[in-house]
């Protein structure tokens, strides 16, 4: 097998799919209209088609050079996403303080240098910071905490 630029190939392929999906969606779901009275589907269909071809070009171009697929930091990604999701799930139900603790504790799994004691300390500092800036400074209507039960 000849070597190819795996990043570009993957990227091109994803773009091709996205373009095709966009055009497909616009074509099926939306009226296309005429040039004078363009329908809501006209522009997305055209953009999707353009993206489709550019994706194909990028993928074809990748056949000429070689490069390996980059490594992804899965652990960092998972921890950060878990932290953000935890925040999103907590803030409305339990309020700001629990949400910040959840965010910090979960996202600290990404780092090898953070232990739980430091993370707790960071959480406390961030709570005070958030309170001072968002609640006092900008007067945002966010609850510090609540007990939903």
């Amino acid at each position: 097998m000849r070597s190819i630029n795996q990043s570009d190939f993957t990227g091109g392929l994803v773009l091709t799919l996205l373009g095709a999906a966009t055009t497909g969606y616009a074509w099926i779901e939306l009226p296309i209209g005429t040039v004078r009275q363009m329908g809501p589907g006209f522009f997305p269909a055209a953009i999707g088609l353009l993206l489709f071809f550019i994706g194909v070009f990028i993928a074809l171009g990748a056949l000429k050079s070689s490069d390996r697929l980059p490594t992804f930091e899965l652990r960092s990604a998972l921890a950060v996403i878990a932290g953000l999701a935890g925040f999103a799930l907590t803030i409305d139900r339990f309020g700001l303080v629990p949400a910040i603790f959840v965010l910090t504790l979960l996202s600290s799994f990404a780092s090898q240098k953070l232990n739980w004691r430091v993370s707790l300390l960071i959480s406390v500092i961030l709570c005070v910071l958030a309170w001072a800036i968002f609640l006092q400074g900008f007067n945002m209507p966010i609850r510090l905490w609540r007990w939903p039960f």
Binding site: G95, W131, Q136, N139, P141, R143, L144, W145, R146, W147
Partner: peptide, 9 residues
């Protein structure tokens, strides 16, 4: 039902 403490101004 909604027990929440708003920060005092």
């Amino acid at each position: 039902k909604n027990n929440h403490s708003y920060p005092k101004g």
